[in-house]
Design a protein around this nucleic acid. Structure first.
Lengths: 336, 336
DNA sequence: GTAAATTCCGTAAACGTTTTCGTCGATTTT
DNA sequence: AAAATCGACGAAAACGTTTACGGAATTTAC
């Protein structure tokens, strides 16, 4: 009735349990004939190794902790899908936690995962304060950050070049003839968002147009937030011909607000996002945006983490991938 | 440098490590003064219990395995968010795996999680064949199925009443004056879909209208599938005034196909979905649909699972929640 | 005042593996 | 033929906890 263990197999096979362990681990210190016999008996008895016991002695669990702000955010869930599949291919399983956009909770689940003895942690931080908040902890377990970047940051991270991406976006709108571009949704306390806004500001300066930024204090980048910001903005007359959003989800909220106001996109207003979540491709949305290569980010993050697990003393590394423009139908060209 | 363990604390405190264990576990077999002293020393030394070692001796990991077809499906990711948060509240962590709509992979990750010694598994099955495929495995670890249901199924599951939901949907369309309603996307090899189609057929019979079902052999319920099915259907002239989709994601694909064809929703065609994913609420989509109470499903599934973990010998239980109509603006009333 | 009960704590076994070390027989070397 | 080498396997320690058991010290009961 009970689960069959190494000892049980050993008893049946008439060998020591060291031998059974060797037979299954592919050790060279065992004769080919006994290996075959033991393996056969293992299969007959339905033996499956106990990962917990193995973790105990090997001092590694082959579990990677993943902390996301919220798994139901489309960007997060797409990333997670790629992460899980690639992790499994590399022999790891994923333990997933939501930080729910809360710094304290983020720290709490980080500690929790450490107590679980995960081999490493991949973290999509709540914001720039996450670094300070987690400083003592990240020193104790291999950690890779996704998304937030800052060149002088003493952590491992992968990210797209946010500044460059937003610069491309701004220049694209400019090339369509837009001279008054509103930047919507710059989240406070977020390096990612700071860098994106920098890209916009850089481009404005270079192109000689006046920047205009609406900031956002809500830690989420959700439809609701985009909707609320746009709605407030639409209350009074405005002169912008285009809105550049800090994230696709925000842009989708803007579409909602515009819709209610009778503002048609792209006829009356051009709109761009950032991230390229899968929904943005749908015709009713059809959002021109900047793509984050999610699979590449996932693979890079895991490769980096696994590397660090293998040599924890290595110095911090950073990988910055290139974002690319995805042109759909939410922007139109206007005359100068 | 190394991690601080029970023994270390015991040595510093000048007690046996049994005492340390008792101090932390809230055992009554310890004096209040020593408890306080030991707890203080634990904090000072930054001791955190090793969950792996504890799992080893306690024979439980406090980990729940979650198998979803694909975490980036909006319905799944919303469910997962609820599951993770509630599980953590109950003292469990979630180990998440994608089955990628593949029966073999589903079985493979199930075994994997068993080897991980998870305390229980929550499974959103690939399809009706999952039951047979996993029969030998589900007997070995507490398992709760979400979504697929069938009254005579010897498994634990939670689900909405799919038949009733689709019946409501059909009757709603009828009440708006629709007499020719196409059912789109009945997935083969899926009990859920079979039950939904049943609801539609029941209603048609009761209302005296002619049913018309387009089936779908693809195991996914994605935008693409809905798009492809609708596109094919729109190729030739059709007389239906409404389309009832087996899932919101499919309906969103239909919107795409309709858009391309110049068919306007709801003016030219009424459209309904099932699931009520968060995107369906967005004005550009604004889909009338049938709600699945995702948080309630998550809570019910976990309660059921935890119950079963505590008494594994209990007989199978089923929970069927009620779906409810969510009326938005993708359907219009027509004259008889 | 002693016997019994109670309180508090230490000893040691157990959980299921991996791996080091040692042993024994067989094979090769001199 | 004796010595050295080698291959295959067993014995046992180790990983960090929890907990049953037992013992000493203290309290309670007569």
């Amino acid at each position: 009735m009970g689960v069959v263990t190494l000892k049980d197999v050993a008893k049946v096979a008439g060998v020591s349990y060291a031998t059974v362990s060797r037979a299954l681990s592919g050790s060279p210190e065992i004769g080919e004939s006994t290996r075959k016999r033991v393996v056969r008996i293992c299969e007959e008895m339905g033996y499956t190794p106990n990962s917990v016991a193995r973790s105990m002695v090997m001092k590694r669990t082959n579990i990677i902790g993943l902390i996301v702000t919220s798994i139901d955010n489309p960007f997060m869930s797409e990333m997670t899908a790629h992460l899980e599949i690639y992790a499994r291919k590399c022999g790891y399983n994923l333990m997933v936690c939501n930080s729910s956009y809360d710094l304290n909770l983020e720290k709490e689940v980080f500690s929790l995962l450490m107590g679980r003895k995960v081999d490493g942690i991949i973290l999509i931080p709540v914001g720039n304060e996450s670094y300070d908040s987690l400083k003592n902890l990240t020193a104790q377990v291999p950690t890779v950050f996704i998304g937030e970047n800052m060149l002088d940051l003493p952590e491992n991270y992968v990210s797209v070049d946010n500044t460059n991406g937003m610069q491309q976006a701004t220049e694209y709108l400019y090339s369509l003839g837009h001279r008054s571009i509103l930047y919507l949704g710059a989240r406070e306390k977020s390096m990612t968002h700071q860098l994106r806004v920098d890209g916009y500001l850089n481009a404005c300066k270079k192109l000689g147009i006046e920047p205009n930024v609406i900031r956002n204090s809500d830690p989420r980048s959700s439809f609701r937030v985009g909707y609320a910001l746009a709605k407030a903005h639409f209350e009074t007359p405005f002169s912008e011909t285009a809105i550049l959003c800090a994230a696709d989800t925000l842009a989708i909220g803007v579409i909602q607000a515009a819709y209610e106001k009778g503002i048609r996109i792209p006829r009356d207003l051009s709109l761009m996002g950032f991230d390229n979540i899968s929904f943005s491709a749908l015709p009713p949305i059809d959002l021109t945006t900047v793509n984050q290569p999610k699979q590449e980010l996932a693979v890079a993050a895991l490769d980096m983490l696994i590397n660090r697990i293998k040599k924890p003393e290595a110095s911090h590394t950073k990988t910055i991938l290139s974002p690319s423009l995805v042109i759909r139908n939410s922007c139109r060209a206007i005359g100068d």
